[in-house]
């Protein structure tokens, strides 16, 4: 069960943006989007890791690097060879998207789409592919006759089941789900969340779950990484992160979530201002323009992601895999001002 299945070390990904004609004439450099900056993260075998943060902070870019759809500009993404067990890397992790429709070929029946994946990876002899397709449909609780139908004949929730079946067809070790339930209604969302829970138990899958829904993260994940402007700013066990968030950004994010239990909005906005442009991330701590406790040092010196010295027990040990890590010069002080 334990042990890291995948190690992300110092991964950066930049995109060269477009430049207006005027800027080009003036000889201005091409703008560069800093989508990921020096991200290090270990993913443990069998765990459910949540990735949260505001739109544009790099969650999908990280996901695409993890499944090999993007090549990082710097850093490495290394699988544990023992965990891979001879599987090719490109099959070890599979992606589930928010809009499965966009990733399904409208002209292929669901059965052919699944058979194609099984065939491409040569996972079954031809004669057994039909049985494997039936098994996949059964795993995601779709009726067997779904195989003969086309994607447009299914509801949003059912399409997401098809998307999950297609990811499972490659027999991955890890699923990376990018906002898989964000487009679904609450009642259907619960069905898909339950399916993820069930599949993890049955298939011992590792799950990376990207979502903006912090209520869901709290329920489903065991660890959470919080991202801000391309960097991981805090990572901790889910329970610890929600009980005792250390980074001022995490604290604000949690405070901003509207909950049923809360009858009024707490005084004062959770976080003021907006996400700065990733074309020009602020120097020092990228959060400093919005941080309520920033000091002079924050504007010039970038805080490293380190175990929090104020965390209890083992979680403060630098080498401990369970360490509650936070990238803030004032993490201990921040804890003292955290919302109850």
């Amino acid at each position: 069960m334990s042990g890291d299945i995948l190690s992300v070390a110092g991964v950066s990904k930049h995109f060269v943006g477009r430049r207006g004609v005027l800027d080009a004439l003036r000889g201005r450099p091409m703008p560069v989007v800093h989508a990921l900056e020096d991200v290090s993260l270990a993913i443990r075998r069998g765990e459910t890791l949540g990735i949260v943060g505001e739109s544009g902070c790099g969650k999908s870019t990280l996901a695409r690097c993890l499944v090999g759809l993007h090549q990082p500009d710097a850093g490495s993404i290394a699988w544990d060879p023992a965990a891979l067990g001879g599987r090719p890397r490109f099959r070890a992790s599979q992606m589930v998207f928010q809009d499965p429709f966009g990733s399904l070929n409208p002209r292929l029946t669901v059965g052919s789409a699944l058979a194609e994946v099984v065939g491409v990876h040569r996972l079954r002899p031809k004669s057994e592919i039909g049985a494997r397709v039936r098994e996949l449909l059964e795993q995601v609780h779709l009726p067997a006759d779904a195989a003969q139908r086309y994607p447009h004949e299914f509801s949003g929730g059912q399409r997401q089941r098809i998307g999950i079946a297609r990811a499972l067809a490659a027999e991955p070790l890890m699923l990376i789900a990018d906002e898989p339930v964000s487009a679904l209604d609450v009642s259907v969302q619960a069905q898909i969340v339950n399916l993820f829970l069930e599949l993890q138990e049955r298939l011992a899958l590792t799950l990376v779950f990207i979502t903006h829904d912090l209520r869901l993260v709290r329920h489903l994940t065991e660890r959470v990484a919080v991202m801000y402007l391309g960097r991981v700013v805090e990572v901790a066990e889910t329970q610890a992160l929600f009980a005792d968030p250390r980074h001022p950004y995490t604290q604000g994010l949690l405070k901003a979530v509207p909950t049923i239990a809360q009858a009024t909005r707490p005084a004062g906005p959770a976080i003021t201002g907006e996400l700065p442009s990733p074309l020009a991330p602020p120097p020092g701590c990228a959060f400093h323009p919005r941080c309520p406790i920033a000091v002079a040092r924050c504007r010039t010196e970038r805080p490293a992601l380190l175990p929090d010295p104020a965390a209890p027990g083992l979680a403060r040990e630098r080498s401990a895999p369970d360490a509650h890590r936070v990238a803030c010069h004032l993490a201990p002080q921040a804890a003292a001002t955290a919302p109850a």
Binding site: G157, A190, L220
Partner: peptide, 22 residues
């Protein structure tokens, strides 16, 4: 609808979806 939400219940417990379709 309220019961289908991920709430204060035990972490990773099954949620209670509304059966059937819209």
């Amino acid at each position: 609808l309220l019961r289908a939400l991920p709430g204060e219940g035990a972490a990773r417990a099954r949620l209670q979806p509304i059966p059937g379709m819209p």
